[in-house]
Design a binder for these strands. Structure first.
Lengths: 384, 384
DNA sequence: ACATTTTGTTCCACGCTGGCACAAAATGAC
DNA sequence: GTCATTTTGTGCCAGCGTGGAACAAAATGT
C-alpha cells in the first residue's frame, strides 16, 4: 500500500520466495508479474502477494505499463529500485584499501582508495571501521559489508577466516568477519578476491545465464572462480580454482614454489615483466614494447598467452563450462597473441572441442574487485 | 500400520522429506527418530509422520531397541529394508554387457556378463531389453534401470544422449534412455561410467561424508567424477573431470590426440603395457615383471604413478576436495611406486598442502561400475 | 512408588501455496 | 458505442506440510 521512497538502512527479512523474485529481477531486469511467476516457478497468486510485500518494502517499483502488440490487459512491469539499499565492498591489497558503495543493481555510487599505514591486523580493522563509518554518513549508508583479498578464506564454523595472507604479512589465521562485524554493527562477508569478482560477474556481468562459469583474474597473481548450480564452488578449505601451477614447458620466471616452467612463470604481471626484460613494476613498458613488435617483449606475451590457454584448457576439461571469462589488469596477452592461446587449446583439448569453448574478455576495471565484494555481501543477504 | 513384507515392483511417490530421510539412512545407517530429525533438519513431529509412511510402504523397518547408558526411554532405531526394492545396473563395454541387480543398500544380488554379438545400437538395445526381462522374472525384479559406459552422456532436454561413443562404434548421438525406457517399461538413467562409480562411492562407499569428493577410474582410459554439494558435477555437456591430457613431460605411448607426454601416455593400461614393453593386452605380465623388480616394467609404473600424482594435484588445485579416491583395475602404480606419486604432489602442489591431501585406495571390483549404474538409477528416483 | 529423563505420537495453529472466481484493462468485431 | 475476447492482477479459500506443545510411553535412579 505505502511506498517508501527512502533508502533502507537495514535489510529486511525476506522469505525464500521474496529473495527468489528479487534475484530474478537482478538477473534478468524488469519483468511483468506473470513472467516472473513463470521464471521463479510460482503461481500468479503467490507472486502477487510477494510483489505487494516488496513494493511495500520499497525494494521494487511498478514501472510503466508495457504496450503489447497482442490483445489483453497490458502487463505492469516490476522494476528493481536500485537506490533502495546500498552495500559496501572492499578490496584489500598490500598497500591500499579500495572501497566502493554500490546500490542494489551493483552500480558504484561511491569510491575511495585509502593507503594502508601499516599491514597489522589491528590497523586494517581500524581503517575498515573508519571507512565504513565515513561512508555510512551520507544518503547511501550501506546495509552490509563485503571484503575481499587475494588469499584463501576458510569457513570455520560460522566464522570467515583469512588464512595466512602472505602479501599482508599475516602469519596467523585472522577471523576478519568476526573482527569487523561488531566494530561496524553490520553483517560482514569475507571472500577471495577472484571469487568475489566471479560472483559479481555471474550476477551482473555478461556471465549471467552461463553455467558452469569459470572466471580468471590475471594480475600480480592468477586466481579463478567457478560457479556451478548458481553457487560459487567453495571447496573443503575455500581453495578452489588454484590452477596456476600447471607445468607448460619452456623457461620463465621462477615462481614462489621454485618452478620456472609453470603457468605462474609466464602469466602473472611480474613474470611478463621479467620475461620481457623490463624493470620490475614496469609492466607498461613491456606492453608498449610488445605492441611495437619488439621481439623479446612479444615473446613474453606469447608465452603468457600459451600458458593461459593451457590452464583454460584444464578448467574446460575439469568443469565443462559454458563460458570462460578472462578478467584482471594483466590480460593483454589476449590481444597481443590470440593465436598462441588457440594453439594451447588445440594442444590440451580434444580436437573437436576447441571451437565449442567460449572465451570472453569482459570490460574490466580494478574497482570491480571491490564491487565484487559488495555483491558477495548482497548475495549473502539474499541467500539467507 | 500394516507392514508389507514383499519387495516392491514399483517405486512409490515419495515427498521431498521422505526421500531425505531415506537418503540419510542410506548414507549413515540405522538411526533413531530423534537423530534422524536432527540430521535432516525436521521436527520430531514431522519425522514421526514420515517414518510411519515409510514403514507402511515397507521401505523401512523398526529395529531392536537400542540400549543406552543414559536414562530416559531408549530410542527405537529405524533400519532401511534393503530387500524392499531392487535396481538393475549395466556397464557397457566394447564386447560385453555387465549387468547386476542390487537391493536398496546397493548390495549385488544378481550378476550377469553377456557378450555383445555386435555393437549396433539396435543389437545393444535388444540385448538390454532381453537382460532386463530375464532379471525381472525372479523375486528381485528391478524398479529402475541404470546404464553406464565410458563416454560422454549429454542431457538434451529430458533425454539422456550418448555422444559418439568410439569404443562402441556409434558415430551419432544415441538417445539410449529414450530407446530402452519404452522397451522395458522402467525408468532409465544413462551416465558416464566413472560418474556412476563416483555416485556409488559417495553414497555407499568410504566416500560418504567427504565433500568435495574426487574419484578416479583407471583402466583402459582415465576418467574422473566429482561430487560437490551432494551432487555430481555434470557440466554444460556432461563432460566434467576429463583431466587426462595434462602434459607431464617425458616420453610415453602416443595417445589418441597425438601426445606422447600427457597423462594418458603413462597412466592407462595400454600405455603401461607399451611403456613396459609387453604385448598389448598383457597387463598381467607387466605387473608381474614390475613386482619382480625388472627395470623397464618398474619404470613404466613409476612414470604412471608420477603422472597420476600430477592429475591428482590438478584436481586438488581445482576442486579443493576432502578426499581423492583412486579406483579401477589399473591402479597398481599406487602400490608399486607410491613415492613417485608423492614426488608429483610435491612438484605440482604448494608445499604446505601436500600432507593435507587425503588419497584413498578403496576396494575395487569391475562389477562396481554396473553397481554404480544401479545406484545412479536409485539416486534419480530419490531425487525426483 | 515416584520423580526424572528421553523418546514417540497426537493435536492443532500457522504459513505458504495454488486453484478458482472475479475484477480490471486493453483490443477487435459489429 | 457496445459487447465479446484476451490477458493481467487480486481476493478468497481449501489443502498441505510444518513445528510447537501437550501428552503417552519406556527406561533409570532415588
Amino acid at each position: 500500500m505505502t511506498t517508501h521512497a527512502q533508502p533502507r538502512t537495514r535489510w529486511p527479512e525476506l522469505g525464500h520466495a521474496g529473495g527468489l523474485v528479487l534475484l530474478e529481477l537482478l538477473l534478468h531486469g524488469a519483468q511483468s508479474r506473470v513472467r516472473l511467476a513463470e521464471n521463479v516457478g510460482l503461481s500468479r497468486a503467490s507472486l502477487s502477494r510477494i510483489a505487494r510485500e516488496l513494493l511495500d518494502l520499497g525494494l521494487v517499483v511498478e514501472g510503466d505499463v508495457e504496450l503489447r502488440e497482442s490483445r489483453g490487459r497490458p502487463p505492469e512491469t516490476l522494476h528493481l529500485r536500485p537506490e533502495a539499499a546500498h552495500f559496501l565492498g572492499v578490496k584489500l591489497t598490500g598497500d591500499t584499501l579500495y572501497a566502493v558503495v554500490t546500490d542494489l543493481s551493483a552500480r558504484v555510487v561511491e569510491q575511495r582508495a585509502v593507503p594502508l599505514p601499516s599491514r597489522g591486523v589491528d590497523t586494517v580493522v581500524a581503517l575498515l571501521t573508519e571507512v565504513a563509518a565515513d561512508l555510512s554518513a551520507g544518503a547511501t549508508a550501506p546495509v552490509a559489508i563485503g571484503i575481499c583479498l587475494a588469499g584463501d578464506v576458510l569457513r570455520s564454523g560460522p566464522d570467515l577466516v583469512v588464512r595466512r595472507s602472505s602479501f599482508l604479512g599475516w602469519n596467523e589465521d585472522v577471523p576478519l568477519a568476526a573482527l569487523v562485524g561488531p566494530a561496524t554493527g553490520l553483517p560482514v562477508t569475507v571472500s577471495n578476491d577472484v571469487h568475489a569478482l566471479t560472483a559479481a560477474h555471474h550476477w551482473f556481468g555478461s556471465g549471467v545465464a552461463y553455467e558452469p562459469l569459470v572466471v580468471y583474474g590475471l594480475g600480480a597473481g592468477i586466481g579463478s572462480g567457478v560457479v556451478v548450480g548458481g553457487e560459487l564452488l567453495e571447496g573443503a578449505h575455500g581453495r578452489t580454482g588454484r590452477i596456476g601451477h600447471l607445468r607448460v614447458g619452456g623457461t620463465g620466471r621462477v615462481c614462489e614454489n621454485g618452478h620456472d616452467d609453470c603457468v605462474h612463470s609466464f602469466v602473472t604481471i611480474p613474470s611478463i615483466e621479467f620475461n620481457a626484460g623490463v624493470a620490475p613494476g614496469d609492466y607498461a613498458t613491456a606492453l608498449r614494447r610488445a605492441r611495437a613488435g619488439e621481439a623479446r617483449a612479444v615473446d613474453a606475451f606469447r608465452r603468457a598467452a600459451f600458458a593461459l590457454g593451457g590452464i583454460i584448457a584444464e578448467s574446460v576439461n575439469a568443469f565443462d563450462p559454458q563460458m570462460v571469462s578472462v578478467m584482471g589488469e594483466g590480460r593483454d596477452m589476449l590481444d597481443i597473441a590470440p593465436q598462441e592461446l588457440r594453439r594451447a587449446l588445440l594442444e590440451y583439448l580434444e580436437q573437436g572441442d576447441v571451437d565449442e569453448v567460449r572465451i570472453e574478455r569482459p570490460p574490466f576495471d580494478f574497482s570491480l574487485y571491490a564491487r565484487g565484494a559488495a555483491v558477495s555481501a548482497m548475495r549473502a543477504l539474499l541467500a539467507g
